[in-house]
Nucleic acid binder design. Sequence first.
DNA 1: GTCTATAGTGCGATAGAC
DNA 2: GTCTATCGCACTATAGAC
Lengths: 188, 188
Amino acid sequence: MARWQPGARERLQSVALRLFAERGFEQTTVAEIAAAAELTERTFFRHFADKREVLFAGQEDFLQLFTDPIEAAPAGTPAYELVRRALEAAGEFFPLERRTFARTRAAIIGGEPALQERELGKLASLKTRLGELMRDRGIGEPTATLAAEAGVTIFHLAFQQWIADGEERSMGELARERLDAMAALVSV
Amino acid sequence: MARWQPGARERLQSVALRLFAERGFEQTTVAEIAAAAELTERTFFRHFADKREVLFAGQEDFLQLFTDPIEAAPAGTPAYELVRRALEAAGEFFPLERRTFARTRAAIIGGEPALQERELGKLASLKTRLGELMRDRGIGEPTATLAAEAGVTIFHLAFQQWIADGEERSMGELARERLDAMAALVSV
DNA sequence: GTCTATAGTGCGATAGAC
DNA sequence: GTCTATCGCACTATAGAC
């Protein structure tokens, strides 16, 4: 018999989400999360660099969502078209079933400035990675960085609307709407 | 004779900047900053909500830099033109003399993920405020939010280039370059 | 102004899997 | 034997409560 149960990381994450939703992020201690997952505080910090990270870890596939369609595009594809393709692909990764979970998680994050900061930090690394990818494809500066910033921003705004109260449209539809609004904004 | 020296807040800020530059942010304790400013730890936290905030407090005039030109614009001015005017005004607030200070501060922030997160948070509140201002002027969604996001992003990218090693162009010039790049990006 | 809870770190011990 | 996941304990600094 194993000395410890497998899936410690996932257990910590789901327990943390539940406790944060019930009592709030600040009102939940790491010790409580660890105890509820039948682990110790020390083990929590082995898996997550800090308390906030338990809500954000494990989103590596999320990154690929953007990079895959960009890498698959033919050489010479203009920056804006790369952004459009990445958003199109990202839109398909947010089916309606995920919306309830996403709303729970967003409610926790939205109520805590420290968690909002972390979310912005994650989006910033995504922007950095996409900018590098653009430059690797021969797109110059400042266009590469700007395209990456614009793409992630449009995704984020679409996502926030997607989880807004009463919103029923799909992620893809909302992303397209914001992409069009961006084009309209600068074409005065 | 005064029981305490005036300018406690400013003293804490300049002492903190110096110590952070010398030893690094994490390697400097709040107790050390307070002692060097001849104050107590408690006084530090009376002025700043947390350790990071000492590097960011006192930027209220920075907000007005963007809002003033937008409020001064005639009714019916399109969103993109409002952004252009705000950037134009912001450009004038960064004279060459500030560049050395800005570089020191940026070096501290750039070496510490926690400080980068706080900076992104500050920029996010600026985006929120500008979005409200746009909506107050009758600009609808998602254009208002998008314009605010684009404007602050362009400002931030221009600022980062302004403090880059060897860069000698003015803030206004760099902002215009990025604004043009944004227009070029979507006009495919 | 003082006290204390909690986050987060460093290092070592332990117990299995291989 | 090596490697890895967990635990135990001592410790510091932040930040908030009193």
